[in-house]
Design a protein around this nucleic acid. Structure first.
Lengths: 272, 272
DNA sequence: GCAAAAGTGTTCTCAATACACCCATGA
DNA sequence: TCATGGGTGTATTGAGAACACTTTTGC
């Protein structure tokens, strides 16, 4: 299993919720109810590309459908009474257990060919959630893409009614995805790369305190290219957003690095 | 009336379609039909921010509702069988008479509060298009924003069934707009500014041939700040996308500038 | 002490800036 | 010929790239 938390935190989580990694969320409004009238906007969904950073790897949260070898981005539908940003935030909270996540809408996907009604029907039947044949879920769906940045150590992935796993994958080892979800993921990554410099993205992917090499590995992993250590250090310090704290005491056979933190903690999302 | 085309083109257009500037487009599928079942995706619309450049001004195409002093961005709905990019392209063609327009999706707007069902009802009644009370147009609507870049001289704005004018406004003199359309316009402008450098945006806002000062004014207008003439010239020439043609013969009491054109004519749009 | 990794310094290059100067044109 | 505006040249500045050097730590 790819999910591996630090031992200390693992114990803590196990203590308060013993089945934390395979615990279905009980949504008060069930979009897959076969009988009740939908309170969701028809033919529109939200798909989330949830990025985390751990062990020098950029990771994405991927969901697996129940009783099927089909993988997808975590997603959901928009209730009639909630803003789309709120919907994305709710979906994220359901999946990660974390509120106040950094969130960014990046694109909307609406090709006719991006849907596969037969596959939808099959997956819902396998998950034990058969719908009426005329349900809008069997029509084409437009999907609004959001990407989210989370502190890996704060997240405990959770399944929902139609998925039986929700786990982190290295960005380079994501399995074949449902319909156009790979395209959505790649567009999210491209947007992340584009915005890495101008926004406090790294502050939401790292723990509150970190070393300069850790920050550099984050940059190198996201941008996919190595950077010169000396220049990276100077550039980061010159930008003035970092604050040096103290020495870090590691077990490594080398000089201990300084710890840094971001001066202004930002965990906001743009309103659209 | 702000609409002013070059005399030569005006004559040509008048010749082939005498009422070109107040000519309703006959859409084969009427989203406002009070009786027929909708073939459109419910609760989703497309709004277009159509940019043009003329007389050293950045201009936007604004629609006015029939029999009401309400102004809005040109928009429309998505047919069940068309991609969202195609829908935007169709809406643009209906408004401008131009196909093959440079098109870019930039954001999707879906706050609950962005709708005003009462105003919608009032406007449709005034336009002579009353709908059934339970029509989805009176529910909240999510709008996908596209911006388009057009050669001002090639466009003849056209009204539709619920508007009685469609005219160019200077970006600084746009009247108060319907619901959140000003926000949409500003987001479009911000995206345009962000992408001005990295894309061949200017090639779609200028005629095929242009002078360096014209290009500079375009940049200064979009970015909203003056630039040094000498440096601008060198930077543009150094980028290698321009091709010098010949001298331009003007009536001005000064040296005649060179004419330039872009090496690769690009009129594509990103597929989403 | 030595290897490894962190931190700092130095040089070079190139692009952007700011300004000066030259050229063509029509009144 | 002079004002106007287009085109080109040049010195200065600053950021980034590449590389060398110093410092700290555990073995």
């Amino acid at each position: 299993m790819l999910l591996s938390l630090p031992e200390k935190r693992k114990f803590f989580l196990t203590f308060i919720q013993p089945t934390y990694f395979i615990q279905p969320m009980q949504s008060r409004i069930d979009p897959y109810s076969p009988t009740r009238k939908s309170r969701h906007i028809a033919q529109v969904s939200i798909d989330c590309v949830i990025f985390g950073f751990h062990h020098q790897q950029l990771k994405v949260l991927i969901v697996k459908f129940k009783n099927a070898d089909v993988y997808a981005l975590p997603g959901g539908f928009i209730r009639q009474e909630e803003n789309i940003d709120e919907a994305a935030r709710r979906i994220l909270a359901e999946r990660t257990g974390v509120k106040n996540i950094y969130l960014e809408q990046f694109a909307t996907f609406g090709n006719v060919g991006r849907n596969n009604p037969e596959l939808n029907r099959e997956l819902l039947i396998k998950a034990g959630k058969p719908l009426r044949e005329d349900h809008w879920l069997f029509q084409r769906t437009i999907s609004i893409g959001y990407y989210a940045l989370v502190d890996f150590t704060q997240v405990c992935p959770q399944v929902d009614e139609i998925s039986d796993s929700c786990t982190w994958y290295d960005i380079t080892q994501v399995p074949s995805l449902f319909i156009d979800h790979r395209l959505i993921m790649e567009k999210a990554l491209a947007t992340l790369r584009r915005d890495l410099h101008q926004q406090a993205i790294s502050s939401n992917l790292l723990p509150p305190q970190f070393t300069m090499p850790e920050l550099q590995v984050l940059y190198e992993t996201i941008l996919g290219q190595p950077m010169l250590r000396a220049n990276f250090q100077r550039k980061m310090l010159a930008s003035g957003v970092l604050e040096r704290i103290e020495k870090k005491y590691t077990g490594g056979a080398h000089r201990a690095p300084y710890l840094y933190r971001f001066k202004q903690v930002s965990c906001n999302a743009n309103e659209v």
